[in-house]
Simulated scan of single mutants.
Amino acid sequence: MTSLRLAPLGAALALTALLGTGTAHAAAPAVTPATTAATAPVRTVPAASVPAFSDGYGLSVLREETQVRSPTDFTITVTTAQLSGKHPIRILLPAAYDADPGRAWPVTYFLHGGGGNVNDVAAAPALHSDSMITVVPDGGLKGWYADWLMQNTAEGKSNWETFHLTQVVPFIDANLRTRADRAHRAVVGLSMGGYGSLHYAQARPDLFGHVAALSGAIDFGMWEVRGAVLATELNLAGAWCAVSSSSGSGSGACTGHGPYVDSDAIFGSPYPFFNADRVWQAVDPAAPVNLAKLSGTGVTLYTGNNDLIDVHTARASHTVKARLDQLGIPSRLVDYGDGASLAPSCNGGHNYGCWAPAFADYVPRLEAAFATAG
């Protein structure tokens, strides 16, 4: 049977449902690191001062496009047959990486949100840790950390999951001194990247022993979450986009989610009729069959509940937590509500004013887990 399709009008109605529920709240205060993330100086030190990367695992390094902020903060650019175009990977090394050449390090992969980019990591300083390597791969403006069903859209080849899990991870292990086992590897993300982190931990439990989702789109059973995905496909996201990237800082500035693509492009039809939404169901992070794959994985969820987006991510996070409890899988949920319990910068909304202190809470716990693993 031909899959049911969502017309642009239908997606607009879904987005209206997403943004039209609940009570509006004041915008988050600006976060200084967020406004400077993309404009931080580059090439201030020679490229030779950072590790040399060799091609491999389907990735070709464009060495002339390496951007160096410091010996421990640089961006390489790669091409791959799995994706159209060029794709940056920002890498943060511990301060002692060069001084201790016999040491291997745990690795954390940070997945940015929709409308964001690899430079968003600058808005969460805790992720630049002296106890681990942090890798920030490009996730696209609306890649959704998925191998798209449609490969002939305006976005071109779009196999994001394959790029990250079968290319970037082994490429990093081959080029840096890493602890290449699940006990010393984590995946964390926010918003769209919150979906990506939980999905990746479920898809490849052999790779990731730790996962954190912040304000994550982690329940595909919710129409509000499906509506958000559809809105990014059709570039109708508006406020969602503005607060999912550190460049916006929740201020309303937004570059959008790239060109319009078919509403079925990523996960197929969202309609729950005649099994048309089978892909959505298969990759739903909140599905018990997928949550069961997290047995033995350290799971952490953060969310506020005080704006038109996080009121929905809170519901999704509580659903995931309750189902993990039913499965007997330990997890930690931090619902900081209006943000007062988290940090002065946090208003409980979908922004780095909350995500930065959430990472400041999470990273020391992750570092301790890495250390306990030996």
Rank of each mutant, 00 (worst) to 15 (best):
V283F: 07
P8W: 11
W148R: 02
L294S: 07
C254V: 05
V320A: 05
T313I: 13
A26E: 13
I172K: 00
D219M: 01
T166Q: 15
F220G: 04
V45G: 00
V136K: 05
P288S: 10
I76H: 01
D361G: 02
S341M: 06
R43L: 14
P170Q: 04
G22V: 09
Q151I: 11
L18F: 15
A37R: 08
F110I: 01
P205A: 03
S249V: 02
M222E: 13
K142G: 08
N235C: 01
A276V: 00
V42N: 06
E367C: 10
T134E: 08
G58M: 08
R278Q: 05
Q82D: 15
Y57I: 00
D206P: 03
T303Q: 07
L333D: 05
D138M: 07
H210T: 12
S191G: 13
R69G: 10
T80C: 11
E64N: 13
S49F: 04
L62S: 08
L291P: 03
C241Q: 04
T36N: 07
T44N: 12
V279P: 00
T232G: 06
L294N: 04
T372I: 00
Q67G: 05
G258I: 10
L294M: 07
A340R: 12
V211I: 10
P8C: 12
L18W: 11
A314H: 01
A265Y: 08
Y97E: 02
N290V: 09
L333E: 04
V279S: 00
H210S: 14
T44G: 12
E367P: 11
A286R: 01
F208T: 05
W148D: 07
G20K: 10
L141C: 03
S191L: 08
D100V: 12
H164V: 12
D147C: 08
F370A: 05
G102A: 15
P29A: 13
G216S: 03
A201T: 06
E65C: 07
F273P: 00
W240Q: 09
L9C: 06
I329N: 06
G189W: 04
A99C: 12
T300S: 15
S131Y: 09
R315M: 10
A174I: 01
R43K: 14
D100A: 13
H350E: 10
P71C: 12
R226S: 07
V299W: 03
F359E: 01
A28N: 07
M192H: 00
M1C: 11
D264P: 00
D100N: 14
Y336V: 02
A239Q: 11
S331L: 04
P170S: 12
P125I: 03
P270S: 11
S251Q: 13
